[in-house]
């Protein structure tokens, strides 16, 4: 019998601890499939961040280091500088990458550090129980914006791809989503490209994946996927924000 669906080799057998309907699991799978397809499992080193995905080191079959909150790109810089022949990626949430780690994000991009960043934007701090994130939408209710995010008082969400597209060093920036099959396919292609870029020495490549947090959004998994379409994507439009090697250059 032909096997038509199997677990990627780059994923371990450890059961994922993510909540039902959380798209962290899909994103893990996409990254693992890409690692399999590129045949880079043996030379890949991952950097886990602080957030719901902190235990990514248990889920991927590759060497892993767990970084302090926000510091994954700096740790990845050290790993990559130590051995440029290795494939180095970070896996970070929005609180990690766009609040406490903003400086590390911007500067690793500015240095065109030859690493791959998987940025999971679920508009909330998942792990700590649903506080307002730098990416929380205007008027969105969270534990620390119980009356809705009041942009007058607390400021506006940060659009990471748009922000980084002004950083000369950033080589490839794309925002994708995993809320339906078509988008999942595109997300995988973008992740593959972000890894391939590193193999080709092209420098800093970041894929922002618009993700869900049904638990802290207070929505069923199905409703959460709908929320991505109706609320998240209008604020965070999908697409390639920068690709310095593409024909016609940058968007």
């Amino acid at each position: 019998m032909d096997v038509v669906f199997k677990k990627p080799h780059a994923l371990t057998d450890a059961p994922l601890h993510y909540c039902p309907g959380c798209t962290h699991g899909i994103i893990h799978r996409l990254v693992a499939e890409v690692i399999d397809e590129l045949g880079i499992e043996g030379e890949t080193i991952g950097v886990a961040s602080v957030g719901c995905s902190v235990m990514a080191y248990d889920y991927f079959n590759v060497d892993f280091v767990q970084a302090a909150h926000g510091r994954a790109p700096a740790v990845a810089t050290g790993v990559k500088r130590s051995d440029p022949s290795k494939v180095v990626f970070t896996y970070q949430g929005d609180g990690d990458l766009a609040a406490i780690g903003t400086a590390e994000t911007v500067h690793s991009a500015a240095r065109r550090e030859n690493i791959t960043v998987i940025f999971v934007n679920n508009a909330i701090y998942g792990m700590t129980g649903g506080q307002m994130a730098p990416t929380t939408l205007p008027n969105m209710v969270t534990q620390t914006s119980p009356y809705g995010r009041n942009v007058e008082a607390v400021g506006y969400p940060i659009k990471v791809c748009e922000l980084l597209s002004e950083v000369d060093g950033a080589a490839y920036l794309e925002r994708v989503a995993v809320n339906n099959v078509a988008n999942i396919r595109k997300a995988k292609a973008a992740i593959k490209k972000a890894f391939q870029n590193q193999l080709d020495g092209k420098g800093f490549s970041l894929v922002e994946v618009v993700s869900t947090c049904p638990t802290n959004w207070g929505l069923t998994p199905a409703k959460a996927l709908e929320f991505v379409e109706t609320d998240m994507l209008p604020y965070y439009p999908l697409g390639v924000y920068k690709d310095i090697y593409a024909e016609g250059g940058e968007k």
């Binding site: 510091r71 700096a74 500088r81």
Partner: peptide
């Protein structure tokens, strides 16, 4: 902060 975390990476 970034410097010490780069140290962690190499180490």
């Amino acid at each position: 902060i970034a410097a010490i975390n780069m140290v962690i990476g190499v180490s």
